[in-house]
Simulated assay, not measured.
Amino acid sequence: MSQADVVIIDATNQILGRMCSKVVNLLKEGKKVYIVNAEKAVISGPKARVVEGYKLLFTVGTLFNPYKQGIRRPRSPINIVKRTIRGMLPKTPKGLRMLKNVKVYIGVPKELEGKQTLRFEDADVKRLKGKYITVEELAKEMGWNAYVKPAK
């Protein structure tokens, strides 16, 4: 792929749903998309409502054991963002190929440092008037254990 076909998006203070819909449009154009700082994207709404909504969305019980979960919840910020994008893509083999053109990172990896990033103005957090929660806070509430390697 040429350099023009690669788009790097900085998710810092971007509304998750609006940003992901823009990413889907880029994927439909045939671009390869890298999303950095995924943990800093925001979801609108009060914290308790957002967390309960995500837990309800991914909790499925069975008839014999109603407490056993049937669907694994995405817990890391990477999986939360990718799952949001996956829900907006077509449910066809073409949609699956498009999903493979998305790479999501926590922070900025060394190979992408210093490169120009794209931000969507209509997905900025300034549009929100009410409360919001970051994807990192949501991930911690869902059980994500952020392990950080100690510096040597």
Rank of each mutant, 00 (worst) to 15 (best):
I71G: 10
L89Y: 05
V6N: 14
I80S: 02
G95D: 05
Q3P: 09
Y105A: 01
V148Q: 14
I9M: 03
P90G: 07
T134N: 00
L89I: 03
I8Q: 03
E136L: 15
A11K: 02
K140W: 06
C20Y: 01
E137G: 05
K68W: 10
L89E: 02
P93A: 07
I71T: 12
K149A: 11
C20W: 00
G95E: 04
G95A: 06
K55P: 10
R119F: 04
Y147T: 12
M19L: 05
K100N: 13
L57S: 13
K68M: 14
E52K: 11
P77V: 01
V50M: 03
V135M: 01
G17N: 04
G70M: 10
E141L: 04
G107C: 06
I133G: 02
L96P: 15
K94T: 11
Y67G: 09
G45L: 00
S2W: 09
A4I: 14
I106H: 02
I78L: 06
L16T: 00
V23A: 03
G107W: 03
R49V: 14
I43G: 03
P90I: 06
K22L: 08
K103D: 11
K91T: 09
K126L: 13
Q14I: 00
D10K: 01
L57T: 13
I80N: 00
E29D: 13
V104M: 00
V135N: 02
D5E: 13
T62C: 10
G30E: 05
T92M: 05
Q69C: 09
R86C: 08
M19S: 02
R97K: 12
L26K: 08
L56G: 13
K100M: 15
L112R: 01
E52W: 13
N13D: 12
W144M: 02
V81F: 01
A41G: 00
K110I: 10
R97T: 09
G30Q: 06
Q3W: 10
T59Q: 12
I133N: 01
